[in-house]
Design a protein around this nucleic acid. Structure first.
Lengths: 345, 345
DNA sequence: TTGAAAGCGCTACCAA
DNA sequence: TTGGTAGCGCTTTCAA
């Protein structure tokens, strides 16, 4: 049996409080006594107060939870998610807090349970899919949280970008180059995804909110040059991976009149599309991950690390002014070689 | 005040054990009573047992700690570390366990405290630097752990590769191409690093164990063709980043007889070296990260995800056979275009 | 199937 | 500066 604080107290011949103070409040006892306690503890193989017991008593844990609304192991394969995490980690370091990464099972009940069982002081929710249920569960626990959802509730802390406007801006870049027959590529379009062409009466039916907003932004730009939603080709990828992007655009080969450009909802998908398409087809991405520049991918840059950092800081230092709890980050259109004017035919 | 399990028990008019069972052991009470309890709880705003209290009572947490022996936020910028983490996450998902990422302060005392305060059931230690003190602290807590250290103690659980042999193999590739005047590039060579040329009487003095073993392996190959340690140029990078690699090799411009090849201790450093050197200089890396292939970098492949997965599995399912607790992973030499025969002059 | 009792290991208050 | 006391919120025997 490992020794407890009580054992050390008995061995030294002092009370438990004094031993506790020796670890947590060194100023509450003489340096000499403290040293005697620490020495005895070391000799007995006691390595300090049990973290769990301490958390229970103190009512705070010293860790924040990070939730990815997609599979945790996938999150690490998504360069943008990793950048977000880097930012969160920076803030956590500054606040001497740990990061609890909680894998969420696919079934809602399991996900709920996972969120309820996480021993944390608050959550950063990286929204890449369905977040409603998860956020409700956190709310139910009464814990503070920050989201990157594309549509935060008023009063919720949030860090994000104007998804729709950013998407519109890159689509306008393409309309400016003369593109009219285009395909939109995203994942999380339907609840039960399959790769390839999708018939979609209305953008409102798109499952994932981020994809929905970006597609809506793309559509805005085309609507303003007279291309209505039904004339846009919608491509669904199964998952946000390069391979899924490549796979999805294969469906274009079957078309009599293939699009002159593909607008992807992420750089990862866009790079996959470039892998599978001839270079005459213009391609755009979203995020500006590290791989985008060497590939010459035209994209929208959003500050990934800063997103993570701001989210975590919002959790650690809640702003008193409620308006300051919503941080809108800037985006920039980055024009590279993957987009060109429509070839005359 | 949030309601506790006790409040729910009183509201329903049953004992606390029964409410506890309603959550943790549904088979211990009638479905009807359970539903009544759950309904009441919901109405009262009770969202299930407190995770910390439950952990204390049960004596187990449901999370494993992941320790990077370099700054946590840096770890995410290292593609190989991210792959390791991906593997760990996969295993954690399978075992419904969370991942606690613990930032370690640079000072040993702070690092010790951070490890002592982590509420986890065990640790995966990703060794990229000094691990001795950290592992001792874990041992002091009596928690199970797995390392990727290059020199595990007998009896410790471990996952790794034969660093020295792998390094030797890639160096032999270069000696086979005729290279004799070469530079070795690594980080963590000296305790107080500065970028550039390093005078180093003996490889044993290298600070970080992994760098030490890889440099030793490089040296082995050159020794066997008659190039002794003092004839090798040693370059130190400050940190394992692409920029640091580029910066470190700038020191070569000053040499009258620059090396014909640079052997780096990681792909990241190697890519940096390629950024800063003329293409006639051969460069080798280590790890085979995703960026290596497009850059044509000759390197040694080690299975990153598998390393993480195996490490975590070793933690979750301790092998009864102690010999099975040490897993040696295979490596492969991947020859690409960044290495060429020595140009005749 | 349900309940009473006994802590898990610790910290914080208050009094000495 | 030190110690006694009272729980933090829960689970788990064990007995009814």
């Amino acid at each position: 049996m490992r020794p407890t604080l009580r054992d050390v107290a008995e061995a030294v011949g002092v009370s438990r409080s004094t031993v506790s103070n020796a670890y947590g409040r060194p100023d509450q006892l003489s340096a000499e006594l403290r040293q005697r306690i620490l020495d005895t503890a070391l000799k007995m193989g006691y390595s300090g107060p049990d973290p769990t017991a301490r958390s229970l008593r103190r009512g705070f844990v010293g860790a924040i939870g990070v939730l990815f609304t997609s599979q945790l192991s996938y999150a690490f394969t998504d360069p943008f998610a990793v950048r977000f995490l880097t930012g969160v980690a920076e803030a956590a370091e500054r606040h001497s807090s740990s990061l609890l990464l909680v894998p969420l099972p696919n079934d809602p009940a399991g996900a709920r349970k996972a969120v309820e069982n996480a021993a944390v002081d608050g959550f950063c929710v990286y929204c890449a899919g369905d977040e409603e249920g998860i956020i409700d569960t956190i709310r139910g626990r009464g814990l503070p949280f920050v989201t990157t959802s594309s549509r935060p509730r008023a009063g919720d802390r949030w860090v994000g970008i104007d998804e729709r406007a950013a998407a519109r801006s890159i689509a306008e870049h393409l309309t400016g180059l003369g593109h009219r027959r285009v395909a939109l590529l995203g994942d999380g379009i339907s609840p039960d995804p399959t790769s390839g062409l999708r018939r979609l009466p209305d953008v409102a039916e798109v499952t994932h909110s981020t994809t929905r907003d970006r597609l809506a932004g793309f559509a805005d730009a085309f609507a303003s040059v007279g291309v209505a939603w039904p004339e846009l080709t919608i491509l669904e990828a199964v998952g946000n991976t390069r391979a899924a992007g490549a796979e999805a655009v294969r469906a274009l080969h079957a078309l009599a009149e293939p699009p002159t450009a593909v607008l992807a909802c992420s750089d990862v998908l866009a790079l996959g599309a470039m892998d599978a398409l001839p270079a005459v087809v213009s391609v755009t991405g979203f995020d500006d991950i590290a791989e985008a520049a060497p590939a010459g991918l035209t994209t929208v840059r959003q500050p990934g690390e800063e997103k993570g950092r701001s989210a975590a800081e919002l959790l650690f230092d809640p702003p008193t002014d409620t308006a300051a709890g919503q941080i809108l980050l800037p985006t920039t259109l980055v024009s590279r070689t993957s987009t060109r004017p429509v070839p005359r035919s």
